[in-house]
């Protein structure tokens, strides 16, 4: 496959716990995946196998011990996330890599609408356009209007999840990482998320997700990549 958005190869990741006598915990060895535009790839494997670690590597949140994570930016230039400088990673996160995590990191006092609009504002989109888009997306995810102006810290898990989803999907990233995007959602909102993923694929985005919900996975994923625990793989 030459027309990829993300191509990761030879990824290794382990942790050295200095506070526990320097014990070394290997998690990934020689992992890799390639994702094409318009494709949704599901990561599967038993809990603890390293799916989340892989997702964090692909997001730049963890640093790889070895390997490359090549990402094709919107302008066609290829960047290696594994060796990119912090500033390059921030630029990639602004323009290329979208991320929906399981939990929302709440910023005190910032209203939900602003939280959702932030990725567009960071790209220099005008406030009016960004806030309108944020409102439309929150409405589509059935978050009542009266909550839009409130900081999400007091929201329920499901409400926070929808704020997170809106924030991830607002900016049309070419690469999207979805970590259990439907975990705390009801059936109706699950359908909205499935539709959003479908639309992202249609516009040519590459998506990588961890979906515990079998039905969602079957409906959105084009392929499944097995992440095996290291001791079994070894």
């Amino acid at each position: 496959m030459s027309n990829w958005v993300l191509k990761a190869e030879g990824l290794s990741k382990g942790f050295t716990l200095h506070l526990q006598g320097g014990v070394r915990i290997p998690v990934l060895r020689n992992a890799g995946l390639v994702v094409a535009p318009g494709e949704c790839v599901a990561l599967s494997g038993p809990s603890g196998a390293g799916k989340s670690t892989l997702m964090r590597l692909l997001q730049g949140n963890y640093g790889a011990d070895a390997g490359t994570i090549l990402i094709r930016r919107t302008d066609g230039v290829v960047a290696d996330l594994a060796t990119a400088s912090p500033r390059e990673v921030n630029a990639l996160r602004r323009d290329t890599i979208g991320h929906v995590s399981q939990f929302l990191r709440v910023i005190p006092r910032v209203p939900a609408l602003e939280v959702v609009a932030a990725p567009l504002l960071a790209r220099g989109v005008t406030r009016e356009v960004a806030l309108n888009r944020a409102q439309a997306l929150l409405r589509r995810l059935n978050l009542p209007d009266r909550l839009h102006a409130l900081p999400p810290s007091t929201f329920s898990g499901g409400e926070q999840q929808r704020v997170n989803l809106a924030r991830g999907f607002i900016a049309d990233f070419p690469l999207m990482l979805l970590d259990e995007p439907t975990a705390s959602l009801d059936a109706a909102n699950r359908e909205v998320v499935i539709a959003l993923i479908g639309e992202a694929k249609a516009r040519g985005a590459a998506l990588i997700g961890i979906f515990h919900d079998q039905e969602v996975r079957d409906r959105v994923a084009d392929r499944t990549i097995e992440v095996a625990p290291l001791r079994e793989a070894a």
Binding site: F15, T16, L17, H18, L19, R56, G60, N61, Y62, G63, P86, V89, N90
Partner: peptide, 21 residues
């Protein structure tokens, strides 16, 4: 030194691990 969330979530140096923990 590095990206804020990476240093805090994936600290390498023993002192950083102590600080974060």
């Amino acid at each position: 030194e590095g990206l804020t969330d990476r240093v805090l979530d994936d600290p390498r140096h023993p002192y950083t691990q102590l600080l974060v923990s």
